[in-house]
Design a protein around this nucleic acid. Structure first.
Lengths: 199, 199
DNA sequence: GTGTAAAGTCGAACGCGGTCGAGAATTATG
DNA sequence: CATAATTCTCGACCGCGTTCGACTTTACAC
């Protein structure tokens, strides 16, 4: 009967994550203490560390849940038609709205995802899901003759992702402020990338 | 005789910065405590907070010193000739070598500069210095006929900076590992940006 | 069952970033 | 000078993330 322990562990883990989601959403990351989480999850403070090794890790688990929700917005039919640049804008603006929905949460999340302390395989799987969507967009664009032949899908994705990252940085550092400005900047830069800046 | 206090304050500030430079370089940011800094600077722990309001701020002051050194590497003659892509590569590889010189320090610095907690005017002045260098590179390239007429210097800078940022993210997340791979990725993406990915 | 190893739990304690408040040093006033 | 007003200093303390170690529960062999 080796199931009791396992079952309890899974349940406790869920309790911690649920408590974290509740408290982070309510009070934010910084104002939520491990003790708060433990209290809500009805366990001892130290027990939290049997399931997560740092507070950051709890945060990432929380992010997973939130991101999972946001993925739901990327439905394939959404991208069935439209020009490449419009589809890219749509895609990245969904992502941006998710981030800008809670500026501080987004900042914390981006810091962790863009400049992580350690290389993280789970994060790569996550990236892959985004790259897959982008690849679909690019493949469709190529079929319509909007892209050069045999483009390198990986570098293509990285290129547009980088621009998105740059604009996000501009948003956090104060170069662009409103949603409209973000969209304008993305459009200008995507156009540059598609047309090329050289002669 | 209102000078004594002022003089002492300036001296104390220098002592703190010097202690921080010494300790951060030796043990790294996280392993250096405020108490350590105070001890080396020969002042009380609380006194540190008369000069800097958070540990992050001390770190940024430390960064300023380091970055100032790194600026010295960008001498104008350096960029006198060569094709656009080679000059861009040279510029960003200098920056990358500076970051990769101490991975953890670079990570902390980038987190603070790319996704800062609050909008920071001093950081913008700092960016401006980089943008000025890039603008010189672009102007020269245009004179040689490598760029389209009347390019938007700002978006041009942001574009290449974004790509650099994306590659840095790739380095921290483990997609590219060696210096050579970083250079290869930068070259591929810069080429894409110059030539355009569209037909 | 019973004893023992392994795994899980949690209150107490540690380290560190940051604040407080009382006293010391400097400046201003006359 | 004398003394009041202002500014600076720092040991003590707080809160919180994380670790320790003693105690409890479960798993398993016989």
């Amino acid at each position: 009967m080796a199931g009791i322990r396992e079952h309890k562990k899974a349940e406790t883990r869920r309790a911690i994550t649920a408590a974290a989601v509740e408290l982070f959403s309510e009070k934010g990351y910084e104002k939520t203490s491990i003790e708060d989480i433990a209290r809500v999850a009805k366990i001892g403070k130290a027990t939290v560390y049997t399931y997560f090794s740092t507070k950051d890790e709890i945060f990432l688990s929380y992010c997973d849940e939130e991101l999972e929700d946001s993925f739901a917005q990327f439905k394939a039919p959404f991208f069935a038609d439209g020009k490449l640049i419009d589809q890219l804008l749509e895609f990245f603006m969904i992502k941006f709205r998710f981030i800008s929905d809670n500026r501080e949460f987004g900042r914390q999340l981006l810091r962790e995802m863009v400049f992580p302390k350690v290389v993280n395989e789970r994060a790569k799987e996550h990236d892959q899901r985004y790259f897959d969507i982008l690849e679909n967009i690019f493949t469709a664009a190529q079929r319509r003759g909007e892209l050069a032949d045999e483009p390198d899908m990986f570098y293509l994705s990285v290129h547009f992702f980088s621009i998105y990252l740059g604009v996000l940085a501009g948003w956090y550092t104060g170069y662009v402020v409103s949603l409209a400005e973000v969209e304008e900047a993305l459009r200008a830069l995507f156009t540059q990338a598609i047309d090329g800046v050289g002669i």
